[in-house]
Computed example of a mutant assay.
Amino acid sequence: MADVGGGPVFHGPVHNSQIAWGNQEVAQHQHLGAGQALGDLQATVRALLDRLDELGLSLTDTAALRADADALMDEASSDAPDPGRLHRLYERIRTVLGVLATGAVTGAGAGAAQLAQTMLTDVQRALP
Protein backbone atom coordinates (compact mmCIF):
# COMPACT_ATOMS: atom_id res chain seq x y z
CA MET A 1 0.00 0.00 0.00
CA ALA A 2 1.39 3.40 -0.91
CA ASP A 3 0.10 6.89 -0.31
CA VAL A 4 -0.40 8.44 -3.72
CA GLY A 5 -2.45 11.59 -3.93
CA GLY A 6 -3.68 11.36 -0.35
CA GLY A 7 -5.33 7.95 -0.36
CA PRO A 8 -4.48 4.27 -0.18
CA VAL A 9 -3.48 2.38 -3.31
CA PHE A 10 -3.57 -1.40 -3.37
CA HIS A 11 -1.67 -3.39 -5.96
CA GLY A 12 -3.60 -6.64 -5.83
CA PRO A 13 -6.76 -8.06 -4.36
CA VAL A 14 -7.82 -7.11 -0.84
CA HIS A 15 -10.02 -9.63 0.95
CA ASN A 16 -11.64 -9.56 4.38
CA SER A 17 -9.78 -6.39 5.32
CA GLN A 18 -10.65 -3.28 7.24
CA ILE A 19 -8.89 -0.02 6.58
CA ALA A 20 -8.96 3.16 8.63
CA TRP A 21 -7.50 6.14 6.80
CA GLY A 22 -6.95 9.59 8.23
CA ASN A 23 -8.48 8.82 11.63
CA GLN A 24 -7.11 9.87 14.98
CA GLU A 25 -8.99 7.22 16.91
CA VAL A 26 -10.72 4.24 15.43
CA ALA A 27 -12.24 1.02 16.72
CA GLN A 28 -13.03 -1.66 14.20
CA HIS A 29 -14.67 -5.02 14.64
CA GLN A 30 -14.92 -7.72 12.04
CA HIS A 31 -16.61 -11.07 12.34
CA LEU A 32 -16.00 -13.60 9.60
CA GLY A 33 -17.93 -16.82 9.39
CA ALA A 34 -15.31 -19.56 9.66
CA GLY A 35 -17.80 -22.16 8.48
CA GLN A 36 -18.26 -20.46 5.12
CA ALA A 37 -14.53 -19.86 4.74
CA LEU A 38 -13.81 -23.52 5.44
CA GLY A 39 -16.51 -24.56 2.98
CA ASP A 40 -14.87 -22.38 0.33
CA LEU A 41 -11.49 -23.89 1.16
CA GLN A 42 -12.84 -27.42 0.83
CA ALA A 43 -14.47 -26.64 -2.52
CA THR A 44 -11.24 -25.11 -3.81
CA VAL A 45 -9.11 -28.05 -2.69
CA ARG A 46 -11.65 -30.47 -4.18
CA ALA A 47 -11.26 -28.64 -7.51
CA LEU A 48 -7.47 -28.95 -7.16
CA LEU A 49 -7.78 -32.70 -6.59
CA ASP A 50 -10.13 -33.04 -9.58
CA ARG A 51 -7.54 -31.44 -11.90
CA LEU A 52 -4.38 -32.81 -10.32
CA ASP A 53 -3.62 -35.14 -13.23
CA GLU A 54 -3.65 -32.18 -15.65
CA LEU A 55 -0.57 -30.68 -13.99
CA GLY A 56 1.91 -33.17 -15.46
CA LEU A 57 3.73 -33.65 -12.15
CA SER A 58 5.93 -36.63 -11.38
CA LEU A 59 4.28 -39.57 -9.62
CA THR A 60 6.10 -38.61 -6.41
CA ASP A 61 4.97 -34.98 -6.52
CA THR A 62 1.42 -35.99 -7.46
CA ALA A 63 1.25 -38.41 -4.53
CA ALA A 64 2.66 -35.80 -2.11
CA LEU A 65 0.28 -33.11 -3.34
CA ARG A 66 -2.69 -35.47 -3.13
CA ALA A 67 -1.76 -36.53 0.43
CA ASP A 68 -1.37 -32.90 1.57
CA ALA A 69 -4.63 -31.86 -0.12
CA ASP A 70 -6.47 -34.81 1.49
CA ALA A 71 -4.99 -33.89 4.90
CA LEU A 72 -6.04 -30.26 4.38
CA MET A 73 -9.59 -31.42 3.54
CA ASP A 74 -9.69 -33.60 6.66
CA GLU A 75 -8.45 -30.74 8.86
CA ALA A 76 -10.91 -28.27 7.35
CA SER A 77 -13.82 -30.64 8.00
CA SER A 78 -12.85 -31.42 11.60
CA ASP A 79 -14.90 -30.08 14.51
CA ALA A 80 -12.14 -27.66 15.53
CA PRO A 81 -9.80 -27.04 12.60
CA ASP A 82 -6.30 -25.95 13.56
CA PRO A 83 -5.48 -22.78 11.56
CA GLY A 84 -1.76 -23.42 11.98
CA ARG A 85 -2.05 -26.90 10.49
CA LEU A 86 -4.21 -25.58 7.64
CA HIS A 87 -1.53 -23.02 6.80
CA ARG A 88 1.32 -25.56 7.08
CA LEU A 89 -0.49 -27.91 4.69
CA TYR A 90 -1.14 -25.00 2.34
CA GLU A 91 2.57 -24.13 2.40
CA ARG A 92 3.44 -27.69 1.41
CA ILE A 93 0.93 -27.54 -1.44
CA ARG A 94 2.25 -24.12 -2.41
CA THR A 95 5.80 -25.45 -2.59
CA VAL A 96 4.87 -28.10 -5.17
CA LEU A 97 2.54 -25.87 -7.19
CA GLY A 98 4.90 -22.89 -6.96
CA VAL A 99 7.69 -24.72 -8.73
CA LEU A 100 5.29 -25.72 -11.49
CA ALA A 101 3.71 -22.26 -11.71
CA THR A 102 7.09 -20.62 -12.27
CA GLY A 103 7.81 -23.00 -15.14
CA ALA A 104 10.71 -24.66 -13.32
CA VAL A 105 9.41 -28.19 -13.97
CA THR A 106 10.98 -29.78 -17.02
CA GLY A 107 8.40 -30.85 -19.56
CA ALA A 108 5.52 -28.95 -17.98
CA GLY A 109 3.61 -26.98 -20.56
CA ALA A 110 2.48 -23.39 -20.25
CA GLY A 111 -1.06 -24.62 -19.65
CA ALA A 112 0.06 -26.62 -16.61
CA ALA A 113 1.97 -23.63 -15.27
CA GLN A 114 -1.07 -21.37 -15.66
CA LEU A 115 -3.33 -23.98 -14.04
CA ALA A 116 -0.91 -24.30 -11.11
CA GLN A 117 -0.84 -20.51 -10.67
CA THR A 118 -4.63 -20.35 -10.71
CA MET A 119 -4.85 -23.17 -8.16
CA LEU A 120 -2.32 -21.44 -5.92
CA THR A 121 -4.28 -18.22 -6.00
CA ASP A 122 -7.62 -19.95 -5.40
CA VAL A 123 -6.40 -22.00 -2.43
CA GLN A 124 -4.64 -19.01 -0.86
CA ARG A 125 -7.77 -16.84 -1.18
CA ALA A 126 -9.91 -19.59 0.36
CA LEU A 127 -7.75 -19.98 3.47
CA PRO A 128 -9.58 -18.68 6.53
Rank of each mutant, 00 (worst) to 15 (best):
Q36T: 13
A27Q: 14
L32G: 06
E25I: 09
S17Q: 14
L65R: 00
F10R: 04
P128R: 11
I19Y: 01
L65F: 00
L89V: 12
S17L: 13
V9L: 05
E25P: 03
A69H: 02
D3C: 08
R92S: 15
V14F: 02
A112S: 13
A113S: 13
R51M: 05
E25M: 10
I93S: 04
L49G: 01
E25G: 09
V9P: 00
G111R: 12
E91A: 15
G5A: 11
E91P: 06
A34T: 12
R66W: 00
R94V: 11
D61A: 03
L72Y: 01
L41I: 08
G98K: 04
L38T: 06
T60E: 10
G111A: 15
A64K: 07
V14I: 04
D82Y: 04
G22R: 14
D61R: 03
I93D: 03
L72W: 01
S77H: 02
S17Y: 10
R66H: 00
R46K: 10
V14P: 03
G35S: 15
Q117I: 11
T60K: 02
L48H: 10
G35D: 15
V14A: 04
Q24L: 13
A116H: 10
S17V: 14
A43E: 07
L41W: 04
D53G: 07
A47D: 14
A63G: 07
A34N: 11
P81C: 07
E25R: 07
G107Q: 15
P83I: 08
D68I: 01
A76R: 00
L127T: 08
